[in-house]
Amino acid sequence: MANTNDEITSARARGRVGGRRPKLTEDQAALAQRLYDEREKTVQQIADMFDVPRSTVYGHLDKSRTVPRQPKKTAVTKL
């Protein structure tokens, strides 16, 4: 365990942080956020633009900045 911690400390000193690299760059994530906030594209359309799954797009969206969505209007049937 001590060797592992020493290696991690050494790697961090060399500028390594570990973990998986994000699929979207900062510019792509900012564009996705803008398209989503302005309701220009759906999450699926944004995901298709960047060739990633919808879950990746949702992971990059800033939840505190997002505009609340309105539920889809359904046709009212009279009985």
Rank of each mutant, 00 (worst) to 15 (best):
A29P: 00
L35W: 13
V52I: 14
V76R: 14
A75K: 15
K72P: 11
L31N: 01
A11M: 11
V76C: 06
S64R: 11
R69W: 05
R34I: 09
T56H: 02
V17Y: 09
Q33D: 00
I8N: 06
R34W: 09
R54D: 05
Q33M: 04
Q70F: 04
N3H: 13
D48C: 06
V76L: 11
R65H: 05
D37L: 10
G18H: 03
K72T: 13
R20I: 12
K78V: 15
P53A: 12
A2Q: 10
Y36P: 00
K41S: 08
V52R: 01
L61R: 02
Q70K: 15
G19T: 13
P53D: 15
L24K: 06
V67L: 10
E7S: 06
D27N: 15
K72G: 11
A13Q: 11
K41M: 15
E26A: 14
A32S: 14
Y36H: 06
R69A: 14
R39Y: 05
F50N: 01
G59T: 10
D6M: 12
T25P: 02
A30W: 04
V76P: 01
V17I: 15
K41E: 10
A11W: 07
G15R: 12
S10C: 05
Q45S: 13
S10Y: 12
G18E: 02
T25C: 05
H60F: 01
R20D: 03
E26Y: 04
K78N: 08
E40C: 05
N3I: 12
T66N: 07
T9V: 07
A29L: 01
S55K: 14
M49H: 06
G59H: 14
D37P: 01
Y58K: 04
Y58W: 14
V43E: 03
T42Y: 01
Y36A: 00
S55R: 15
V76K: 14
I8T: 13
A11T: 03
M1I: 07
N3P: 00
E40N: 08
D27F: 11
S55H: 13
K63T: 09
D51C: 10
Q33L: 00
D6C: 09
R39G: 12
K23C: 00
A32I: 09
P22D: 03
Q45I: 07
P22M: 04
L79R: 13
M1T: 12
R39E: 11
K78S: 07
A75E: 10
R14I: 09
D27T: 15
R16N: 07
S64Q: 09
T66Q: 15
G15E: 08
T74V: 06
